[in-house]
């Protein structure tokens, strides 16, 4: 009991002092997950829009795969990227395994289906509403994609935040492809797992609080976005 409360006060002191070890880990976590979300959005939004707007052979299969991949277990994603990037794997020559780049790739794989599937649904709904009006204005296919993505911006923000929430909180993928190497690939979730198993609770608790704060913030922003969307704000 005294152990726990002393760990708590040490954790809070780490936060207040902005302890360099903690700051380093938080920074790496944020940059890995934000990069993954950025990449996943750049690929996933156009992909989702194309899947929602255009008919082509194999579209149904791609949509089913995307929907299924929304529930892809992080350890499986990690294993898959590990096999790709390992020495013997097809991308082994780039030496990316156990680097932050590998972690970005693995998290991109986790976030991409969420962003693409939610974008597709958003675009399908908006297209029902706007298709005739946009055809009447002679809007071409690419401008149509851009228009619908912009009209769905609040829903898309929610999708991106959901993706970020998944990336920042997962441990299975980053620990496999990153290896949890001190000062190199150690992020919040992997550190919490390691420190807790060692019985060193203060850093784990401090990072846990940061993680909680981030997740609360994401939810707050998502709620705000939905509120704005309902009011039809420009």
């Amino acid at each position: 009991m005294t152990d726990l409360s002393s760990a708590f006060s040490k954790a809070i002191k780490l936060l207040i002092d902005l302890e360099p070890a903690l700051v380093e880990i938080v920074q790496l976590s944020l940059s890995v997950s934000l990069s993954a979300v950025l990449l996943a959005s750049l690929i996933g939004m156009p992909l989702g829009a194309v899947l929602g707007l255009f008919r082509f052979p194999g579209r149904g299969v791609v949509v089913s795969i995307l929907n299924a991949l929304m529930g892809l277990p992080p350890v499986v994603a990690g294993l898959f990227i590990y096999l790709l990037l390992s020495r013997a794997g097809p991308l082994g020559e780039y030496g990316l395994l156990f680097t932050p780049a590998a972690m970005v790739i693995a998290q991109t794989l986790l976030v991409l289906p969420i962003v693409a599937a939610l974008t597709r649904q958003t675009v399908v709904d908006l297209n029902d509403e706007y298709a005739e009006q946009l055809h009447s204005l002679r809007v071409g296919p690419f401008a149509m994609i851009a228009t619908l993505l912009w009209e769905g911006r609040y829903s898309l923000l929610t999708a991106v935040l959901a993706g970020f929430g998944r990336a920042i909180a997962e441990v299975g993928a980053v620990i496999i492809v990153g290896g949890n190497i001190n000062h190199v690939t150690r992020v919040m979730t992997t550190t919490i797992a390691l420190e807790t198993s060692k019985g060193d609770l203060d850093l784990a608790l401090g990072l846990g609080m940061v993680l909680l704060l981030i997740v609360f913030t994401i939810n707050g922003v998502a709620l705000g976005a939905q509120h704005l969307a309902r009011r039809g704000q420009a």
Partner: peptide, 20 residues
């Protein structure tokens, strides 16, 4: 007739964009 300034239409239920 395909030029953008040729013809326009207003629908029975107005379809407005989520903008100002």
């Amino acid at each position: 007739a395909r030029r953008p300034d040729a013809q326009a239409m207003v629908f029975q239920r107005p379809v407005l964009l989520r903008r100002s």
